[in-house]
């Protein structure tokens, strides 16, 4: 699903506390502005990032996020990779179904997030952790 892309610029952040979320969001915003992403797409990307980082804090007590500028042909985009060493997701298909949630949230975390970005990839191993990669293209 994730197409051939070239990484141009990279940043790694550790998110362990709730307060780190605001810092992280601002960093994503800086990157998005740098590649001239439109306001609506910026908002979608940051909202998606916000959902994922919240999941990471809630279920895995935090983790690591990589922010990258990627390019595909003439289009630039932002790729975010969320890595945690939490409990993992036993049934990814179920987790991606609208209305499903184990936490107390509204249950639209993952499927909603997927709709906000252009590419969404999730790998998870129970007991080991989860790795989610999303890409939003500047013109996507």
């Amino acid at each position: 699903m994730i197409t051939a892309t070239i990484s141009l610029n990279k940043d790694t952040l550790n998110v362990l506390r709730e307060q780190d979320v605001v810092v992280f969001r601002n960093r994503v915003k800086e990157y998005a502005v740098k590649i001239k992403m439109g306001l609506v797409n910026q908002t979608k990307l940051i909202t998606a990032a916000s959902e994922l980082v919240r999941n990471m804090l809630r279920y895995a007590n935090g983790g690591q996020i990589i922010i990258e500028v990627v390019s595909r042909g003439r289009d630039n985009g932002i790729r975010l990779t969320f890595k945690d060493e939490g409990p993992g997701i036993p049934d990814i298909k179920l987790a991606l179904t609208d209305g499903y949630s184990t936490g107390k949230s509204l249950g639209l975390g993952l499927p909603g997030t997927k709709r906000l970005v252009n590419e969404f990839d999730i790998k998870s191993e129970v007991g080991k952790g989860t790795r989610i990669t999303i890409i939003k293209w500047a013109n996507g």
Partner: peptide, 8 residues
């Protein structure tokens, strides 16, 4: 727009 897409 984002909220609608998110389904909220």
């Amino acid at each position: 727009i984002t909220l609608v897409e998110l389904g909220l």
